[in-house]
């Protein structure tokens, strides 16, 4: 009965224009969001954000797929970072727009762990001990490292490492060796590396979270 009274109270023209407006507005909003979703999905499936060439996430970051679903892109971790090593991904970075990453070749993470305490959504899980952080793993390129290829004696990465003689040990001519069990992936070695441009020791991400 209510349906009948509804139809009779609206004349045909009003009903049709309302229907048309509704359909247009719905189609436009849903279509736009669909395109956005499709683009995001492609980026994710592309693998650009998932393989080891992706960016280094701040300490405590959970695995990449869950990180992308929980991170609110709110800039809180960036504001908490005292050394300015957390940056927001812009259009020219390989990560999702607005997500935080550590550009280790620029500034490494000092492991103050403030960011893990301020994250509002658990995308960065609280880590209490520096040793428990697993942001990534430092990898030495023996062809470009001056201590390894014999062109000099350096040891800058060893000096910068917060877990000296555990995560990085030195061999002949201070040639560094990284030990997976102790390396937290903070990137201070990458920052310290004396090579300009592409560093000889680089932190690769994609390591499982603690």
């Amino acid at each position: 009965m209510e349906g009948v009274s509804l139809v009779s109270s609206i004349d045909r023209r009003t009903f049709l224009t309302t229907l048309k407006k509704t359909a247009t507005a719905g189609a436009v909003t849903c279509g736009g969001l669909g395109v956005l979703a499709y683009m995001q999905r492609n980026r994710l499936l592309d693998g650009a954000t998932l393989d080891e060439t992706s960016v280094l996430r701040p300490p405590g970051a959970i695995d990449e797929e869950r990180f992308l679903s929980l991170c609110m892109r709110c800039t809180r971790c960036m504001d908490a970072c005292p050394s300015g090593s957390i940056q927001l991904a812009g259009p020219d970075n390989r990560a999702e727009l607005g997500t935080p990453f550590v550009a280790a070749s620029d500034v490494g993470c000092t492991l103050c762990l403030e960011c893990t305490l301020t994250c509002p959504s658990g995308a960065l899980e609280a880590v209490h001990e520096k040793e428990d952080v697993r942001m990534g793993l430092a990898v030495v390129d023996e062809r470009t490292c001056v201590s390894h290829n014999g062109s000099g004696v350096c040891g800058a990465c060893h000096t910068a490492c917060p877990f000296r003689n555990e995560a990085i040990t030195q061999g002949m001519r201070n040639a560094p060796t990284v030990h997976e069990d102790y390396c937290v992936g903070c990137g201070l070695c990458e920052e310290a590396c004396i090579l300009k441009g592409v560093k000889a020791i680089r932190v690769e991400s994609g390591r499982a979270a603690v």
Binding site: T29, L33, L36, A37, L68, M72
Partner: peptide, 29 residues
């Protein structure tokens, strides 16, 4: 005059799409 209901549709649809894609989408608009 606009149809005010479209924003509720967008909210629902956006949350649904976010759940499907696994990435929060509405924050981008």
């Amino acid at each position: 005059r606009v149809w005010r209901g479209s924003k509720y549709a967008l909210l629902g649809f956006g949350l649904l799409m976010s759940a499907i894609v696994g990435i929060p989408l509405l924050g981008a608009i």
